[in-house]
Amino acid sequence: MSHDPFDALLRRTTVEISRRTAAEGGPLAALRPVLELIDNDEAEMALDELVHMIGWFRIRLLPAEHDRLAVVAAHWNAVESLPDRAPPPRRSPQPSPRRNRKSAPAAQEPEHPDERGGSAP
């Protein structure tokens, strides 16, 4: 494991993102390979993978997380690869709006034979 402060900052930020998104029902398992890359002294590659995962899963970054990633990205001259602070939410298919359809009132049978339009016997 590297003792580089930027590697440590990337690892700490990745762990925070992972825990937060897991608590929100996000992709905990998808971020494990990022941590493995950091632990294997491949932090630059880990940053690329993390950025890819953030985009793919539309992970929302908190301002502090984004700021820490920006410091790490600046260290490796990779700031342009950093995502915006809050990617747009993934749009799920919306059910078609239900129209307030009122069924036509059922035709009422006349109560008296005279009202049917026929002649009385």
Score class of each variant (00 low, 15 high):
Thr13Arg: 03
Thr21Ser: 10
Gly55Ile: 01
Ser92Gly: 00
Arg11Thr: 11
Ala43Arg: 07
Asp41Glu: 15
Glu16Pro: 03
Arg19Glu: 14
Glu36Pro: 00
Gly118Asn: 08
Asp41Gln: 11
Phe6Val: 03
Asp39Met: 09
Asp4Thr: 08
Ala22Tyr: 06
Ala73Cys: 05
Leu10Pro: 08
Ala86Ile: 12
Ala107Glu: 09
Thr14His: 06
Arg68Gly: 00
Glu49Pro: 00
Leu35Tyr: 04
Leu61Cys: 09
Pro113Cys: 08
Leu50Val: 02
Asp7Ile: 06
Glu65Val: 04
Glu16Asn: 13
Ile38Pro: 05
Pro89Tyr: 00
Ala74Phe: 09
Pro97Ser: 07
Leu69Ile: 02
Gly55Lys: 09
Ile17Pro: 03
Leu35Trp: 03
Ala8Leu: 14
Ser96Asp: 02
Ala8Ile: 15
Gly26Tyr: 07
Glu24Ser: 12
Ala64Asp: 13
Trp76Arg: 12
Arg99Tyr: 00
Met1Trp: 07
Arg12His: 10
His66Ser: 10
Thr21Phe: 08
Ala74Cys: 07
Ala22Ile: 03
Ala29Arg: 11
Ser2Thr: 14
Trp76Tyr: 15
Arg11Tyr: 12
Arg19Leu: 15
Ala107Ser: 15
Val71Ala: 14
Glu42Ile: 00
Pro113Ile: 13
Leu50Ile: 01
Ser96Lys: 04
Gln108Arg: 08
Glu42Thr: 02
His52Thr: 14
Val34Leu: 01
His3Gly: 11
Arg32Val: 13
Arg116Asn: 04
Pro105Val: 09
Val72Arg: 03
Ile38Cys: 01
Arg91Phe: 11
His52Ala: 07
Arg99Lys: 05
Arg32Tyr: 10
Ala73Gly: 06
Pro93Asp: 01
Leu37Ile: 01
Asp41Pro: 03
Asp7Ser: 15
Pro83Ile: 02
Leu35Asn: 00
Asn100Pro: 00
Arg98Ser: 03
Ala106Ile: 09
Leu47Val: 05
Glu80Trp: 10
Asp39Ser: 11
His3Glu: 03
Glu109Asn: 11
Asp7Lys: 07
Asp114Ala: 15
Asp7Asn: 07
Asp4Lys: 12
Leu69Lys: 05
His3Val: 10
Glu36Ser: 11
Asp4Tyr: 04
Trp56Glu: 15
Asn77Trp: 06
Ala120Pro: 12
Asp67Arg: 15
Ala46His: 09
Ala29Met: 12
Asp4Phe: 05
Leu62Lys: 12
Glu65Pro: 05
Trp76Gly: 02
Thr21Trp: 02
Thr21Leu: 11
Asp114Val: 13
Gly55Phe: 07
Asp114Tyr: 13
Arg32Thr: 14
Val51Asn: 14
Ala70Ile: 10
Asp39Gln: 13
Pro89Asp: 00
Pro88Glu: 10
Met45Gly: 06
Leu82Asp: 05
Ala120Phe: 11
Arg12Met: 09
Val34Lys: 00
Leu50Met: 01
Glu49Arg: 11
Asp48Asn: 14
Arg99Val: 14
Ala8Trp: 11
Pro87Thr: 05
Val72Thr: 10
